Simulated scan of single mutants.
Amino acid sequence: MSTKRRVTIAQIAEEAGVSVPTVSKVINGRPEVAPDTRHRIERLLHKHGYQRRVSQDEGPAGLVDLVFAEIESPWAMEIVRGAEDAAHEAGASVVISVLHTHAGPGRDWLERLAARRTDGVVIVASKLSSVVQAQLSARSLAFAVVDPEGEPAPGVVSVGATNWHGGLAATRHLLELGHRRIGMISGPADMLCSQARIDGYRAALETAGLQVEPELIRRGTFLVDSGHDHGHALLSLDDPPTAIFAGSDLQAFGVFEAARQRGMRVPEDLSVVGFDDLPLSRSAWPPLTTVRQPLQEMAALATRTVLGMGRGEPPETRRVELATELIVRDSTAPPRS
């Protein structure tokens, strides 16, 4: 039985028509390589599935990289807490990077990463291109994605939540209270979690025999201003909803403010459900009914997984969705008769 031989740097160099040191510079993120040459070498590394040999004497670096698209949110802080707890248990520390874009890690970030050692990378709410995936693999870096923005490629470890079930549970709760005209505010259409929450909302309405009305579904960002603006838009309809399911707690807080500005009370005049169960949802007034997304657990699982992969332990599964749970508080009530 024959086995596939592992490609070497020398073979990559010969095929690319460059020197071995040039290939080594690309693998290690050194900047002094012409862009065209770098791209050619990276394509060959990806084509041959090259993985850097790691010295057994190096030992763990004691660092995990946590990479965010954005971090200006209490949601991100919950992710940080979960990652730090798991890293601390393993005797490691967390290095946080903020990309300020949902396009995923770029060349500059990869070059900075290659200039130092890390035990693994956890990428949060971003796209992961095939090029970045290949570059991480070529450097023998364990990586996982938390709450992936798009569909992860086969073989990529991802940790998310049961967003569809959460959307279903939130909408069913409002239906059981007697609401029949329910607004939905969610995030961008190209985000998996956003679309899954809308699909759960749709399924609950259709199961109840109600028509899904496009004017009641709004897409924005998961931030307060989006909830405020879309909340006003929904409440300005000729036949406004008696309840709104917001795709995040921050959006729900924006709906609270929109209702207040219109002289409406929550839940007497409008029921509101959020999604995430941030610490702020318990201290809001009224306390927010919301779908608990286990953010800390998601980050901790991804961190433990990449640390294990860095030690040569294969992940138990490549795709994990942790359960969501409806938490009923005081922001929902039966509609006015």
Rank of each mutant, 00 (worst) to 15 (best):
S97Q: 10
S93M: 12
A76C: 10
S130L: 07
A86R: 09
H100I: 06
D119A: 08
W164A: 03
S73D: 13
V94T: 05
P154Y: 07
D65R: 00
G59K: 07
V94C: 01
V94L: 03
V159M: 04
S126D: 06
L113G: 01
A114W: 03
R117C: 05
A161L: 10
V67C: 00
D119K: 08
G166F: 06
P105I: 12
V159Q: 02
S137M: 03
Q133W: 00
T118H: 05
T171S: 15
T162E: 12
H88S: 13
R52G: 04
A86Q: 11
V132Y: 09
F68W: 03
V122M: 11
V98H: 06
A161T: 13
D65S: 02
I182H: 15
S129L: 10
G155Y: 01
A125C: 09
L99N: 07
V80S: 00
A103E: 14
S73A: 07
P74D: 14
V156Y: 05
G59C: 08
W109K: 02
I123Y: 11
S126Q: 07
T101V: 12
H100P: 03
A114Y: 03
V132L: 07
P105V: 12
G59R: 06
A103M: 09
V146M: 03
A169W: 09
R116Q: 14
S129C: 08
E176C: 03
V64M: 04
A161R: 07
D147Y: 09
V95N: 13
A92D: 09
E111C: 01
L175M: 14
S126A: 10
V67K: 02
T162R: 08
W164M: 04
R107Y: 01
E89T: 13
F143M: 00
A142Q: 00
G82P: 09
A153I: 00
G160K: 01
E176L: 07
D108Y: 05
L174E: 14
L66M: 07
G120V: 03
T171C: 14
A170D: 02
V124E: 05
S93Y: 11
R53V: 15
R53W: 14
D85P: 06
A142R: 00
R107K: 04
A170R: 01
L128A: 07
P60Y: 07
V131L: 08
L63N: 03
R52D: 08
A103F: 06
F143Y: 10
Q135M: 09
E78C: 13
A86D: 12
W109P: 05
G178Y: 09
V157E: 02
K127Q: 15
A103H: 12
D65I: 03
G120M: 01
S126F: 05
L113I: 04
K127D: 15
P152C: 01
P74C: 14
D108L: 04
A92N: 07
D147L: 11
G59I: 11
V98C: 10
A92K: 06
I123T: 07
A86T: 10
G150I: 13
P152H: 01
L168C: 10
V121T: 03
D147V: 10
R52V: 11
R107V: 11
A61M: 00
V159H: 03
A114S: 06
L175T: 15
S129R: 08
V131Y: 05
G59T: 11
G62I: 06
R139T: 02
E58C: 13
V121M: 03
G120S: 02
S129F: 09
H179L: 14
V156P: 04
E78Y: 13
V121R: 02
R81L: 13
S140D: 13
R116H: 13
K127V: 15
